[in-house]
Design a protein around this nucleic acid. Structure first.
Ligand SMILES: [Mn+2]
Ligand SMILES: [Mn+2]
Ligand SMILES: [Mn+2]
Ligand SMILES: [Mn+2]
Lengths: 151, 151
DNA sequence: CCTATAATATAGCAATGGCTATAAGTGCGA
DNA sequence: TCGCACTTATAGCCATTGCTATATTATAGG
């Protein structure tokens, strides 16, 4: 790597490289599980609401095409989150239900936290849909603390 | 789409479909620009710190391989964010500097906000690296308000 | 019971974001 | 000046996440 000529005493805008790389790695990791979390959460909600989760409904709510959902469901089945019967709706495994519940709880807390900060319902809903996947346990705890202090 | 047999009076865990789809679309959109924002921000920081941004340094700080960076830089150049001279470092265009500055400001606010909530420096750093890309203008404003009220 | 419609499956394509291996260019020090 | 080490470019691979077009299956009404 290139050696920068500036003396070590000068502290620029840059943080330590090893420190920074860990943040980026962690973020890339969260990005990889983002879709899975949204799928199982949505499937759980659809089942809770209507008794079943069908591809067309998942596709409609995610705003993607049905074959996109079909392919993702295969991955979720291969990963052990759902069970599929051909030409039928999907069902969550124990592992899937566990992840769905954790995701929904975290999602709720993030969205409620944003609302508590005075953010509008619509913006809180939109922002929480993305932010939720990048919130660590420590940060989630801080959000919960804030919410309970607000009463 | 499938018609659910439950009466409309029953309000389940599910929000309106058109409402939900907009959140997912918005999130997918933010995800598309996430990497671009991190690249231009990092390039700006490297230039500010050492006068130049070299592929090897970008790769080392992002934790990816150098050819991964090379390919992305071509995209950034094609999109008008940077200028490249073969076998030389990269430079930001006016458009690139503009995006870099906006990204860095937003990143700073998010990280400072998490710190103000009592979150540890390391967790704030890691979480902010992901959260920053999913924070709307309205939410950013709310974070700023909280920070100024904190003193 | 048959058929039309709805839902699911499959094939094939593209863009994105990663990787390794290797070729080619730059530039510094001896 | 020239060679070697560093840096950049390129080729080729894979996984992911989207799409359209089309085939197949399920099922409800007549
Ligand atoms: Mn969610
Ligand atoms: Mn989400
Ligand atoms: Mn950033
Ligand atoms: Mn980031």
């Amino acid at each position: 790597m290139s050696i920068k000529p500036t003396p070590e005493t000068f502290q620029g805008v840059l943080v330590d490289a090893d420190t920074q790389v860990e943040s980026f790695r962690q973020t890339r990791n969260s990005r990889r599980t983002e879709l899975i979390e949204d799928y199982v959460e949505l499937i759980a909600d659809l089942i809770a609401d209507g008794g079943e989760a069908r591809q067309v409904d998942i596709a409609q709510r995610l705003g993607v095409a049905q074959p996109t959902v079909a392919k993702m469901l295969k991955r979720l089945a291969a990963d052990g989150f759902i069970q599929q019967k051909p030409y039928r709706g999907v069902f969550l495994t124990a592992q899937g239900r566990e992840l769905a519940e954790r995701s929904r709880d975290r999602h709720q807390i993030v969205e409620n936290f944003l609302r508590a900060l005075g953010i509008s319902a619509e913006t809180a809903r939109i922002d929480a849909e993305g932010i939720e996947h990048y919130v660590s346990g420590e940060t989630l705890q801080a959000f919960k603390s804030y919410l309970s202090k607000q009463g």
